[in-house]
Amino acid sequence: MSSHAASHPQDAHSNNPHADYIGDKVGFWFFLYTELVLFGGLFLGYFFYHMKYKEAFHEAGSHLNVFMGAGNTVVLLTSSLTMVMSLTALQRKQKGLSLFYLGLTILFALAFMVVKYFEWGAKFSYGLYPGSEILQTQHSDGVVIFYGLYFVMTGTHGLHVVLGLIALSWMFVLVWQDKIHAGDYAYLENVGLYWHLVDLIWIYLFPLLYLVA
């Protein structure tokens, strides 16, 4: 294993004599598995209550804006595309192109958050937020649970998008300063993996929340 890692082309080009390309990725995947369990628990809660409150979930889900949800799905999928494009460009020593795609990824992440802002804002203006009076007094238990799950799941996901934005911006600086390059790109690859995970979670959230009606 160590002989394999040491013989990886990346390590040969890297300035760091202790570079371990496979080790970097294994470690990052372990972090991603903890994320899987975090969201996995929320999804399990969703499935459980969906079985219990089928009608209420249908009713509550119909109040979400499918157009905005689908739009945000396309935005995130596109940002995943520009993310891998950025990595391929860096691996092919096209630094300018890599920065261009990375910049686009950051813009798409921002666009996602802007759409989320308007979505949540609309819900708040109807008095729909966790613990709100309207939810407590005018809606059934199932609807309250649906909106609870909606805010916790999209909120946790949104937090990940914000953290992703910070990580992506950090990568932009590192590529700009030539601190990561065609010979040493594990950081960019791992941030890419994180960004695709954020996309993956949304791939499941979108039909569960917006299309359940």
């Binding site: 394999h4 990725k25 995947w29 891998v84 996309d199 499941y204 039909p207 569960l208 299309l211």
Partner: peptide, 27 residues
């Protein structure tokens, strides 16, 4: 059906965008 389609999408993202198809056996 929605979960099945989502899982197809997830498989595409994991295998290609996340490079799993070409990844080290350990990973």
């Amino acid at each position: 059906v929605a979960m099945l389609v989502a899982t197809f999408k997830a498989a595409l993202v994991i295998l290609y965008f996340m490079h799993m198809k070409y990844e080290h056996k350990l990973i």
